[in-house]
């Protein structure tokens, strides 16, 4: 696994240092301060989530976690303590590279979303005027729907766990009321799918959360 990823990433021009244990990873991290960390959650010596927490205590270096299917809890836990994204094993090269690029972009522009207008192919959100339009047609959103959309456009292409979204939109006391979220995401999708392209902006990451696609599919 390490070998394959090192080969792929080196081939794409990254300078890669690969280690086999969580402890080594933390040691090398302190020594080299890499631009991004790709972390497999199944570590031989310690919990992957603990590594994420330890890194976050030091810096905001983007972390992408790798995990197998059915380990949704672990992924959510890693994301909740500060991992930036996850990729489910087995994965395609393109997927991993795309995630890495997004994470690096976010790290480079941490205040993305403070721009007054968010724009993709069809979707356009004017944050100052609180106006949302799809393919030029204005969409009326309730305040909660708008807050939810805003949470997404602040982190395009980044996976947001149910917990994060609930906390941001409804407040910390609602973090276990996931059904509010699912119902509102469904409503928001319906309102945003009026455009001619029937594009999907919000994709479900099963068992983990949602992601707003910067480039609609």
């Amino acid at each position: 696994m390490i070998r394959a990823i090192r080969t792929i990433l080196t081939g794409h021009g990254f300078d890669v240092e690969a280690v086999g244990t969580g402890q080594e990873a933390l040691d090398r991290y302190s020594a080299r301060r890499p631009d991004i960390i790709v972390l497999d959650l199944g570590l031989p010596d310690m919990g992957g989530v603990d590594v994420v927490r330890a890194v976050r205590a030091l810096d905001n270096t983007p972390i992408i976690v790798l995990s197998v299917r059915d380990a949704e809890r672990d992924k959510v836990a890693a994301l909740d303590v500060g991992a930036d994204d996850y990729v489910t094993k087995p994965f395609g090269v393109e997927e991993l590279l795309a995630r890495i690029r997004v994470a690096l972009r976010h790290a480079a522009h941490p205040v993305l979303g403070s721009e007054p207008v968010f724009r993709t192919a069809d979707l356009q959100v004017d944050v100052e005027l609180r106006r949302v339009s799809v393919g030029g047609t204005e969409v009326h959103l309730t305040p909660t729907e708008y807050d939810l959309l805003k949470a997404f456009i602040t982190h395009p292409d980044k996976v947001l766990t149910d917990r994060m979204l609930l906390q941001q939109v409804w407040g910390p006391e609602y973090t276990s009321e996931a059904h509010y979220l699912h119902v509102y995401v469904a409503r928001l999708r319906r309102k945003l799918s009026i455009g001619p392209s029937q594009a999907r902006y919000l994709v479900t990451e099963p068992g983990v959360g949602y992601r707003l696609l910067g480039e609609a599919t």
């Binding site: 996931a178 059904h179 699912h182 119902v183 995401v185 469904a186 999708r189 319906r190 999907r200 994709v203 479900t204 099963p206 599919t217």
Partner: peptide
């Protein structure tokens, strides 16, 4: 179990 919109699930799967 949690409340989910089945229409989006169908969309997600077919996509």
């Amino acid at each position: 179990r949690s409340w989910h919109d089945l229409a989006s699930l169908v969309d997600d799967v077919l996509l």
